[in-house]
């Protein structure tokens, strides 16, 4: 680095062409991502007549009132609240149960430990579609259909295999002398877990929180089948019902989409490192 700073040779022409091509490509793909967003925003802030007359350009009048109208017509406040009500318990349940089981399977002695681990691992391979049909009747028979539990329970359960897999891998990687020291100080297993291991698991837990938050916030098929009442409907199915109902009303449907996207995108921009780590947690080894 230092040598590059001190000696600045004249760049040959080829360097600048390559540099230009490099940035050209990078910007091209950035536009590929951004232009659809731009059109969503433009469409959301036009009237339908303006869309028909000038589908591409900037909104001639920036109709921010469209957002308010979509918010009210689409009952988005209720759908947002419903999404929070189901997502928070799911994330808490998945993360705490995964930490417990992941820790148990990584560090505690018990017969059949690997067997149990593989048993959970099989769950990674079972797609939701393979269990969605009887799950409906099971949830009905235990009487939770028609409550938020109809989403919380199954979404938690299908998220556990990955959570356990992930937390077990994390806890396995921690050094043993930490636990040994704590045990000598008189901690029992739970004490070791709570006082020593859990505080170290911060980044892994954060990744798991993001991963599961996104998973249940974005879930669509599960609430489509199990959360039928409009009173319980979360944001994703709510948005689907809103945009297909107002299908030909493009400005309303894009305004609704914008309302749903904006908070997630804002949170992402604020915490992008955590988001990227959380969402790629399964693919990038921690």
């Amino acid at each position: 680095m230092a040598s590059a700073m001190t000696i600045r040779p004249r760049r040959p022409m080829g360097f600048w062409i390559a540099k230009g091509a490099q940035y050209g490509m990078l910007i091209l793909f950035a536009l590929f991502v951004l232009v659809p967003f731009m059109w969503v925003i433009f469409t959301a802030l036009k009237s339908n007549l303006e869309i028909a007359q000038e589908p591409l350009g900037l909104p001639p009048n920036w109709r921010f009132e469209n957002l308010a109208q979509a918010w009210n017509q689409g009952k988005f406040s209720r759908y947002f609240i419903n999404s929070v009500i189901v997502t928070v318990p799911i994330v808490i349940l998945v993360v705490s149960l995964s930490c417990l089981a992941g820790y148990g399977l990584a560090r505690l002695k018990m017969p059949g430990r690997m067997l149990i681990f593989y048993f959970f691992l099989v769950g990674l391979m079972v797609p939701f579609t393979a269990i969605m049909i009887p799950l409906f009747y099971i949830l009905r028979d235990i009487g939770v259909l028609g409550t938020y539990w109809a989403m919380i329970l199954p979404q938690t359960a299908i998220s556990l295999p990955f959570g356990i897999f992930f937390m077990r891998a994390f806890f396995s990687g921690l050094p043993y002398d930490l636990t040994d020291a704590a045990k000598i100080d008189g901690c029992n297993d739970f004490g070791v877990f709570r006082r020593v291991m859990l505080p170290l698991a911060g980044p892994a837990v954060a990744a798991l929180v993001v991963f599961n938050f996104m998973g249940s916030w974005n879930a669509f098929l599960l609430p489509l089948i199990y959360l039928q009442s409009d009173k319980l409907r979360p944001i994703m199915t709510g948005m689907m019902f809103f945009t297909t109902r107002w299908g030909p009303d493009y400005s309303m449907s894009m305004a609704g989409t914008l309302i749903v996207m904006a908070p997630i995108m804002a949170v992402y921009l604020a915490f992008q490192r955590q988001f990227i780590q959380g969402l790629t947690a399964g693919a990038v080894r921690g």
């Binding site: 949830l139 009905r140 259909l145 109809a150 039928q228 009442s229 297909t244 109902r245």
Partner: peptide, 22 residues
């Protein structure tokens, strides 16, 4: 009153009614 399309009603009506949420 809640408004749906025919497609949406076909998606949700049977399961919703069986769930007691119809």
């Amino acid at each position: 009153r809640e408004v749906y399309t025919l497609e949406q009603l076909t998606d949700i009506s049977r399961t919703a009614i069986e769930a007691g949420e119809g």
